[in-house]
Design a protein around this nucleic acid. Sequence first.
DNA 1: GCGCACTTGACAACGATTTTCAATACCCCT
DNA 2: AGGGGTATTGAAAATCGTTGTCAAGTGCGC
Lengths: 157, 157
Amino acid sequence: MTSTEHQQPAERIVDRPGAKGAASKPAIGARPTRQRRAVVDALAAAEVFHSAQEIHAQLERRRAQVGLTTVYRTLQALAELGEVDVLVRGDGETVYRRCSAGHHHHLVCRSCGRTVEIEGPAVEAWARRTAQEHGFAQVEHTLEIFGVCADCAGQAL
Amino acid sequence: MTSTEHQQPAERIVDRPGAKGAASKPAIGARPTRQRRAVVDALAAAEVFHSAQEIHAQLERRRAQVGLTTVYRTLQALAELGEVDVLVRGDGETVYRRCSAGHHHHLVCRSCGRTVEIEGPAVEAWARRTAQEHGFAQVEHTLEIFGVCADCAGQAL
DNA sequence: GCGCACTTGACAACGATTTTCAATACCCCT
DNA sequence: AGGGGTATTGAAAATCGTTGTCAAGTGCGC
């Protein structure tokens, strides 16, 4: 993830826009629709990162009637609002997961996908310092750790 | 441009296989062909990460007659041999760059693409320790820092 | 020289994502 | 409550990077 921070009510996208002091235009019209709620709910229930396609398939199984296009759009919007984490898998597929507000990284199980959010103030500082030393500004960074969790390792996969 | 970087024979892929004690099979037949040399040369000259398509386009401009498929295959082979770094850009495109041997990370300029290889023993240790704390084994990690280099920042892009 | 395995490359196939665009749903205003 | 305009949806087509196919080409050991 990037060091840019976001903290907002986790579901602006399905909130009524009316009541709030219309200061900034949301990334999307922000109208609470059945489809958006379905996507948000699916994410809320998910423990691991999922691709748009996976979420769409899951909704279909659940007879939720949401178009693939809409799933993509909703996920993009949520990502822009910083309400979900985005990860580009090695194979190029983009995956999403609900996340806590602040800046954090991930420890992901290669086998079952279980994900632990982690923080590393020391690493943040190191990254910033290193970039500065080389004259770089507007620094962001990505850091993900992959491994095999205890459960999966136990099952001698 | 800050040249004077590491120069290694980093071209196993075009070396004759004969002489070496045929212990392990290379990721590719390792026959030195005009096409492979062209790709390796293009990488040797490159200062920044490039996609297969970009390299192919460049070779074409240079009238080097190398098929796109071959560029892809050669880059994959080089990556498997660890002779180039692979990065999956945010948009999912895979990019390559020649690199020094050991484990390292990158500091990349968002504007011009200039890349600095960096090391962070402390970070390595931290990652390992953190993973262990959560019971994860077979740990790997990815870490890239993005920013705007001094030159680009100066030009008020 | 021969022959065969390694390579190549044009093209088709793929799969994820985006775009298009017409139909629909929703909300504000009167 | 109804109108109207805008946000939203979604099916299908278009993109686009990448991989698979397979016949033709090439290099190297023998």
